[in-house]
Design a protein around this nucleic acid. Sequence first.
DNA 1: TCAACAGTTTAGAACTATTATAATGTAGAA
DNA 2: TTCTACATTATAATAGTTCTAAACTGTTGA
Lengths: 138, 138
Amino acid sequence: MLNNSHYIDKLRSSGLRPTKQRIKICEILFNTEKTFHFTINDLVKKISKATNDKISLATVYNTVHAFKKKGYLKEIPINSDQSYFDTNTSHHHHFYDENQNDLIDIDDADVEPVKINTRIPGKKIKSVEVLVKVEDAE
Amino acid sequence: MLNNSHYIDKLRSSGLRPTKQRIKICEILFNTEKTFHFTINDLVKKISKATNDKISLATVYNTVHAFKKKGYLKEIPINSDQSYFDTNTSHHHHFYDENQNDLIDIDDADVEPVKINTRIPGKKIKSVEVLVKVEDAE
DNA sequence: TCAACAGTTTAGAACTATTATAATGTAGAA
DNA sequence: TTCTACATTATAATAGTTCTAAACTGTTGA
Ligand SMILES: [Mn+2]
Ligand SMILES: [Mn+2]
Ligand SMILES: [Zn+2]
Ligand SMILES: [Zn+2]
């Protein structure tokens, strides 16, 4: 993943024009071993560290939403102050550290499959996600 | 629960003065067989249906926060557009209907206990909640 | 090759949920 | 009844997000 051509192909093949703003954001979000969680504000900071060319706030929002729509990002509901996004789009659960305001992935192997023994007629399950809130031990 | 004196006692015993606004909100939130979920906007509508005396928006927010702090309400994270509150303060899980934008309790008996086989050092678990997103079948 | 067009970026305005402010009102104690 | 801390209120302020409309750019196909 050292090369941008990968992102150019990825963007093009999903019907998104590979603009320099989108490629830069791809680099920041996906050029990394580990996946991570971020808010729009986090991403804006990362961008301004990574480049001298400004990307407007509107474009950051536009791009994150476009990537979410294409399935390259997930949105994680934790609180209603800000949206949290996740570069890990696989099915997984989270710890939320209420002291540090920090989201942490739980390896799917570390959670026994969640069994829901009831259904809603006419509805199908889209996702089952566990949120484990933690706080400093006394 | 036909009588306000119950709420007056409840409020007073938790250090909240039993004002007519708080008593009215108690009636709307707790004078019911079934628990339910609501947004601030839902509650404002319920209030204006239930009474001719206006309660200011600031008071609605203040009261909901005060009740949450005292443990009479829970906040449920689903999305970042609005806060959702729950009059069911017991440990339980939810369906979230993405078509109807509707939160539905899952009876705790219908969910196998969620086993998390990993911990975060120095942190203790505060809650473990499952959110099952559903959508219209097919 | 390049004109044309659809898609994209952008600054800034608008919007909306929520919180802060500060003046007025009120419950409860003495 | 008087006093005071607590509560309510209208309104302003804030902050995250979305909208707008003008400028810009990637892509297509003549
Ligand atoms: Mn919150
Ligand atoms: Mn949302
Ligand atoms: Zn994650
Ligand atoms: Zn509930």
